[in-house]
Amino acid sequence: MGVSETYVRGRRLAREQPFAVVVGLVALWVVWFLLDGLATGSIEVNDVASYAWDGLLRGLIVGLAGIGLSMTYSILNFANFSHGDYLTSGAFSGWAVTYLLAGLGEANVGSLLLVGAGGSVFGGALGIGITTSPIAVVAGMVVAGVATVALALVVDRFVYRPIRDEGGITLLITSVGVAFALRYLIVFVFGTDVRGTTAAGSVPQMSVNVVDGAVRVNAHDLTLVVVAVGLMAGVHLLLQRTKLGKAMRAMSDNEDLARITGIPTEQVVRYTWIIGGGLTGVAGYMFVLWKGTLGFNDGWLLLLLIFAAVILGGIGSIYGAIGGGIIIGMTASMSVIWIPSEFGRAAAFLVMIVILLFKPQGIFSGRTTA
């Protein structure tokens, strides 16, 4: 192949697939930078591996929470800004049950149900962890999902359903009001203090060997991976193998046609809230289990990353939410190799903007449930 032919092909590729060219150039630059840093000793292999592992876990949380947001948009056609506070509500509900089961007989029941508000009870003192109190943790995770489902159904019944025909903007603004109402209700009940929830010393760790060091992986990390991957696989099977999944995809593609063909659209909406709410509540609980602290604005702070993941993956795409979440999580964590850690979120949004410049519809291009 001659130089001129190579040049022509390169120009054609740049014109037809600019996104692939940009991604390729960025990937080459990242690889070169890492190899140069590893060669000179300015970057350690185990640091890179640790950041990558942290990014993967963060991405799984964002992706899992993003599925519910993406489903809401796909089926109901509005961006639910109260989604982050659903996540927080599920987290507090689940951790109230975990505290109660782990500390029953050791502390006041009221203090346990308030998740140690005001420093009355500490999760570390109760020895809470997946290996030390597995029943309490599993029960809390289940309750987090169920409580968020109940919350989502109640809000939909009394707030969203009466104005559903008014359009997406009305629903969006209403969801902002719901978000503030939920957030300050949580503050009223549980307080504003950020509390530690797990006993760090009681969480077993293991070292995964890399070239020049080791990456620390604890039991909560592995629990997060198992739960997130399992739920994502379950959503995939539901969408592809069940009548409900087919009905959801049909309603996402064309609601009017779905209604004409006899699909019970109101039932599909109800199941959308059930599935999305359950996943969001579990994501909130697992987020707290992973990072070890719980605060009233956790979901609100995470919401921007969730929106970024959903937009990046392609609004309305379940698989896009998962893929976008992993990309956002990896970027936010890996970027600290080059920039200060406080700019990690900014780097994630920058990557989202750059990708959308070349692929405006998102990576999975299209508004589809599957």
Rank of each mutant, 00 (worst) to 15 (best):
G2Y: 00
R12I: 04
E16W: 02
A20H: 05
V31S: 11
F33W: 11
F33L: 15
D36A: 14
S50Q: 14
A52K: 03
I61K: 03
G66P: 13
T72V: 15
N80L: 14
D85L: 10
T88C: 11
S93G: 08
G94I: 00
G94S: 07
W95N: 03
V97I: 09
V97F: 02
T98H: 00
L101D: 01
A102C: 09
G103W: 00
A107P: 02
L112G: 00
L114T: 04
S120E: 14
V121L: 00
V121E: 00
I128L: 02
I130D: 00
I130L: 07
T132C: 01
P134E: 05
V137P: 01
V138A: 04
G140V: 00
V142K: 01
A144W: 00
T148F: 05
L151S: 02
L151P: 06
L153S: 07
Y160T: 09
E166T: 10
I169Y: 06
F188Q: 12
D193L: 14
V194Q: 07
T198M: 13
A199L: 12
A200D: 11
G201Q: 00
P204M: 06
Q205L: 12
G213S: 11
D221H: 04
V225C: 08
L231I: 13
M232N: 14
G234M: 11
L237T: 12
L237D: 08
L238R: 07
R241G: 12
R249F: 07
M251A: 11
S252R: 06
D256Y: 12
A258V: 03
R259W: 03
I260N: 05
I263C: 07
V268E: 05
T272D: 15
G278H: 02
D298T: 13
G299T: 06
A308G: 14
I318A: 11
G325W: 05
V336F: 08
F343A: 12
V354H: 07
L356T: 09
K359E: 03
K359F: 01
S365F: 15
T368E: 11
